[in-house]
């Protein structure tokens, strides 16, 4: 495999084959909690990707320096630092969004996607590969959150990115509530399973 195509593979795998939410079932808490609207989902996705991207660079740079025994606490501290930056930035620039996301921005610290990528990928690979991996995983995460957020926003409030789509829309309130989050994500995961099974049998 040439270098370029392997980089493309690292990127694509985050979106489809190893999509963090739909395939690896990581980072479920923010996925369920903030996808009440597409915009919230998008903001959360971008904030998480920023943290993932920055901490991947740092961890990858320091991969030969960090002692094996204490790597997890070190990663956690690196991640927590970037989360603090993202949180303060959101609070300063977009106070309304920051309020809507509430404690879920600081909770990026314990998002298993980020720690997982550091442990599995960045700690073993050079910087340029880790960056591509982080970008792929981040895009997969953003995409999932936006799709889920759109479905829930359209069904739950009849609008899309805060633009009202229908007049006199009978709101499907459940979709905006916690129960709707679980149920729609359940169907989403099942759909992805279904499609990938179809693909797998198609190749034979």
């Amino acid at each position: 495999m040439s270098d370029e195509s392997s980089l493309r593979f690292e990127f694509i795998k985050g979106i489809w084959h190893e999509n963090p939410v739909l395939r690896q079932l990581l980072g479920m808490c923010p996925t369920l909690a903030v996808t009440t609207t597409a915009l919230n989902g998008f903001t959360m996705g971008v904030a998480t990707s920023f943290v993932l991207f920055s901490s991947s660079i740092v961890v990858s740079l320091l991969r030969k320096v960090i002692p094996q025994q204490i790597r997890i606490p070190v990663y956690t501290i690196i991640i927590a630092t970037f989360v603090t930056i993202a949180d303060l930035f959101l609070a300063a620039e977009f106070p309304e969004l920051s309020k809507a996301l509430g404690p879920y921005v600081p909770l990026i610290v314990v998002n298993c996607i980020i720690l997982g990528r550091q442990e599995i990928f960045s700690s073993k690979n050079p910087v340029y590969k880790s960056v591509v991996d982080a970008l792929g995983m981040g895009s997969g995460f953003i995409l999932t959150l936006v799709i889920l957020g759109s479905v829930r926003e359209i069904l739950g409030t009849g609008s899309f990115f805060n633009i009202i789509l229908f007049d006199n829309f009978q709101k499907w309130v459940i979709m905006a509530l916690p129960a709707g989050a679980f149920i729609s994500l359940g169907f989403f995961v099942a759909l992805v399973n279904f499609v990938s099974k179809k693909q797998a049998t198609g190749y034979k």
């Binding site: 129960a179 679980f182 149920i183 169907f187 995961v189």
Partner: peptide, 10 residues
């Protein structure tokens, strides 16, 4: 995961 999430929703 699919059915577990839907059960959790209910």
């Amino acid at each position: 995961a699919g059915i577990t999430l839907i059960t959790a929703g209910i």
